[in-house]
Design a protein around this nucleic acid. Structure first.
Lengths: 126, 126
DNA sequence: TCATCTATTGACAACAGGTCTATAGATAAA
DNA sequence: TTTATCTATAGACCTGTTGTCAATAGATGA
């Protein structure tokens, strides 16, 4: 099968610089909170959380999900037959929910640190 | 010269997980905004911005400053003679100030992204 | 048949930073 | 005098996360 034109005709916009280490993981887990989803769908959902989401290469989702599955935070299974290629569905485990909560606490701290830095910056530069 | 007891007697607490990529750089630049400082001093100043700052290994500051100097964001020079070992002083360049401002804009965006994620999380889990 | 879109897998490469070794000057303690 | 401690710097090796690219697949449209 021929490979897709993506690599020959259209050049993908350079991926955004990493900002927060491990930011995609909680985003994906949160998307699974209300319902199971397949990989590509999770990737589509990124745009609600990250600017320039369309610059992410799809392969990243599958690696991340594989790692999270090995950690017991998600389970995966073959999706029901749909039009087009096979789908791999992901569901959130109880451990995954707990881990998500831990990440949220962590992110709140991170946010506070940024806030502090911004505050000091504004004080010093005015 | 004998190496310091740090590695034999006291075990350094494991460094905190990285949260924000490139978070130390703006912190160091901001500390140089009001006055030149030497490396170790910049490291001490970290505690105002980062919890667990004391877990950072001092060597990190010098690598980061070296990189920033090669980018033209800081200049360094031999410090005046002081008690104890030699000191390397760092000063902020005009380019450094501009870069710092860019980082602040970036960090504001990052903070907003976290905020959004936290908001969605709270909505979905209550 | 080829192009495009949806969809997944995996290996190699790159990057940021963590860890550990080494060194040095001054002072205090043994 | 020697050793311990604190302040201070430099560098190499290692690790963890993620970016990039290649490959593949089913369905539909051109």
């Amino acid at each position: 099968m021929r490979h897709q034109g993506k690599r020959h005709g259209q050049r993908r916009k350079a991926a955004p610089k990493r900002r927060i280490t491990g930011f995609l993981q909680p985003i994906f887990l949160l998307q699974l909170y209300s319902q199971d989803r397949h990989g590509y769908d999770l990737l589509q959902g990124l745009e609600e959380f990250i600017s320039d989401a369309e610059t992410y290469d799809p392969s990243i989702i599958y690696r991340i999900m594989r790692e999270m599955e090995s950690n017991g935070w998600v389970n995966s299974y073959e999706g029901t037959v749909s039009r087009g290629p096979r789908r791999r569905m992901y569901s959130l485990t109880l451990e995954g929910k707990e881990q998500l909560s831990r990440w949220m606490i962590d992110l709140q701290k991170t946010k506070d640190e940024i806030d502090n830095l911004l505050t000091v910056f504004r004080q010093q530069t005015t």
